[in-house]
Computed example of a mutant assay.
Amino acid sequence: MDFIFHEKQEGFLCAQHCLNNLLQGEYFSPVELASIAHQLDEEERMRMAEGGVTSEDYRAFLQQPSENMDDSGFFSIQVICNALKFWGLEGTIFSILGP
């Protein structure tokens, strides 16, 4: 490797910069990550609809904003993990519990 790629942080696009720095290139844009988020939203909507499209839970779900992205540039860990799958990589989600 002749150089280390580093994408400077802009706004709140942490997921984009994290992925591109990890992969060492400009591989993901906000538009591409938003597409992944919308796909996840649609999959979640279809799963919720399995309980009945007239159910109170389904109607409440439709009223909620996406948990996969927002207008600030936030993308969920699910979006990041799905983006990594394009490269045959897998993200590991963990939490550190305090005392």
Results as ranks from 00 to 15, higher is better:
residue 1 M to E: 12
residue 1 M to T: 13
residue 1 M to N: 11
residue 1 M to W: 09
residue 2 D to L: 09
residue 3 F to S: 12
residue 6 H to V: 13
residue 6 H to F: 11
residue 6 H to E: 09
residue 6 H to D: 13
residue 7 E to F: 00
residue 7 E to C: 01
residue 8 K to I: 10
residue 8 K to F: 06
residue 8 K to R: 12
residue 12 F to M: 15
residue 12 F to Y: 15
residue 12 F to K: 12
residue 13 L to R: 03
residue 14 C to W: 01
residue 15 A to G: 03
residue 16 Q to P: 06
residue 17 H to F: 06
residue 19 L to A: 03
residue 19 L to D: 02
residue 20 N to C: 06
residue 20 N to Y: 05
residue 20 N to T: 09
residue 20 N to D: 01
residue 21 N to T: 08
residue 21 N to D: 04
residue 24 Q to R: 14
residue 26 E to Y: 10
residue 26 E to V: 05
residue 26 E to P: 06
residue 27 Y to F: 10
residue 27 Y to W: 14
residue 28 F to R: 02
residue 28 F to I: 01
residue 29 S to L: 04
residue 29 S to H: 01
residue 31 V to Q: 15
residue 32 E to Q: 13
residue 32 E to N: 07
residue 33 L to F: 02
residue 35 S to G: 11
residue 35 S to I: 07
residue 36 I to V: 15
residue 37 A to E: 04
residue 40 L to D: 09
residue 41 D to L: 05
residue 42 E to V: 04
residue 44 E to R: 08
residue 44 E to C: 11
residue 45 R to E: 08
residue 46 M to W: 11
residue 47 R to F: 04
residue 48 M to S: 09
residue 49 A to H: 04
residue 49 A to Y: 03
residue 50 E to G: 05
residue 50 E to M: 09
residue 52 G to A: 05
residue 52 G to S: 02
residue 52 G to Y: 03
residue 53 V to C: 14
residue 55 S to L: 11
residue 55 S to T: 13
residue 55 S to F: 11
residue 56 E to A: 12
residue 56 E to I: 15
residue 57 D to R: 13
residue 58 Y to A: 01
residue 59 R to H: 13
residue 60 A to E: 07
residue 61 F to L: 07
residue 62 L to G: 02
residue 66 S to W: 00
residue 67 E to A: 10
residue 68 N to W: 06
residue 74 F to P: 02
residue 74 F to Y: 13
residue 75 F to L: 06
residue 75 F to K: 14
residue 76 S to G: 04
residue 77 I to A: 15
residue 77 I to E: 13
residue 78 Q to A: 11
residue 79 V to Y: 04
residue 82 N to T: 10
residue 84 L to C: 01
residue 85 K to R: 09
residue 88 G to K: 00
residue 89 L to N: 01
residue 89 L to V: 00
residue 90 E to V: 06
residue 91 G to L: 01
residue 96 I to T: 09
residue 97 L to Q: 14
